[in-house]
């Protein structure tokens, strides 16, 4: 009997070794473990045995059954793994081929710069206000302490639409005027006004008849140049890094008194002197000052009670400095090959 069992074991092993598909495995399984399988049939022999032998045979039968089932199971797993491997191999792709391009659109670099600054100012409590580009001479000049014939008007050669009356604004300052007038001297003001501005300049690498300004205005009681300095520090560090230093340099604007130039230490050379800072170690990035008492009074604020600061940046200049653009016309050519999909533009 033992002999017979051993032969069956051997036979099963040999058969399993020869096969490689699940179908063949099914056949072998039936041949040995099926209802009429060779191992199943062994059990019919039990009736002819003595009770003593029956016990031993039963044990033997269980053993070979378990042995056979394990062996078939093992083979099944082997074949399944093989099949999976074949399938995976057949599905192999070249991962170095290009991906499907799903691009997001980019902001214009100037708009990107504006949005970045707006985010900063919104967080500091400044409202973002815009105003008309076709503007009255009154708001663009007169109320800003630039009466007709004022020599400082020369610096802003202006496009007029109607003599002495209507023009394309040469600065975004009229938005400050409009905001102050609308508030009627009643409440404090914290605004920035980004926007398009126009001057009679021939377009070249550093001049553009259309350009972009971002001005800011803050009016409250007891505001000083030190508040402006602190605010400028925040802007400068945001734009050019935590390491930059800031400097005020005395300057002139008809609508501020005192007036200052806003300088940052050269972020390119770290104040040592290079072509960007023209070897001075400093770069002028904007202008600012304390709102001129005449402007305050023109717009219904009492200069004896409140004071304020105003500042202005040329957005093109900031973008040129920050991104390393060397020709201002780049911003207006809209060459799509220049578009970057980066979060920091």
């Amino acid at each position: 009997m033992n002999e017979k069992v051993e032969t069956l074991k051997k036979e099963l092993k040999e058969k399993l070794e020869k096969i490689s598909s699940l179908a063949e495995l099914g056949a072998v399984k039936a041949e040995f473990l099926g209802k009429k399988g060779k191992i199943t049939e062994l059990s019919s022999m039990i009736k002819d045995l003595s009770p003593m032998e029956k016990k031993d045979f039963g044990k033997l039968l269980n053993e070979i059954k378990t042995f056979a089932e394990d062996l078939v199971q093992e083979k099944q797993e082997l074949i399944e793994t093989m099949i999976m491997n074949d399938k995976l191999e057949s599905e192999r792709i070249d991962v170095t081929l290009p991906g499907t391009t799903i691009k997001c659109g980019s902001p214009n670099m100037l708009e990107g710069m504006i949005e970045d600054l707006e985010e900063l100012f919104l967080n500091m409590g400044y409202d973002v206000v815009e105003g008309p580009e076709v503007e009255k001479d009154l708001y663009n000049f007169e109320l800003l302490n630039l009466p007709k014939g004022h020599p400082a008007r020369d610096a802003q050669d202006t496009f007029y639409l109607k003599d002495d009356e209507l023009l394309l604004r040469s600065q975004t300052s009229p938005v400050q005027i409009r905001t102050m007038l609308a508030n009627e001297g009643k409440s404090h003001i914290r605004i920035i006004c980004p926007g398009k501005t126009y001057r009679r300049d021939d377009d070249d690498a550093t001049h553009s008849h259309q350009f972009t300004q971002m001005e800011g205005l803050l009016i409250d009681e007891g505001i000083s140049l030190a508040d402006l300095k602190g605010t400028f520090d925040v802007i400068a560090k945001h734009l050019f890094g935590q390491d930059v230093e800031t400097r005020f340099r005395s300057s002139f604007y008809p609508f501020t008194e005192p007036s200052v130039e806003l300088d940052v230490s050269c972020f390119n050379c770290g104040n040592k002197g290079c072509s960007i800072c023209k070897n001075t170690g400093w770069i002028t990035v904007g202008g600012a000052g304390m709102v001129h008492p005449k402007v305050l009074a023109n717009c219904g604020y009492d200069p004896e009670k409140v004071s304020g600061f105003a500042f202005g940046f040329g957005v093109e200049r900031l973008a040129m400095l920050k991104y390393g653009v060397t020709d201002v016309r780049t911003f207006y050519l809209n060459d799509l090959r220049n578009n970057s999909d980066r979060k920091d533009v």
Binding site: L122, G125, D127, V128, A226, K229, G230, D233, V234
Partner: peptide, 15 residues
């Protein structure tokens, strides 16, 4: 010496 204007805290708005 730089300082920040001491004003009420608020978030600005688009007007």
């Amino acid at each position: 010496t730089s300082k920040m204007p001491s004003l009420a805290i608020k978030r600005g708005e688009y007007v």
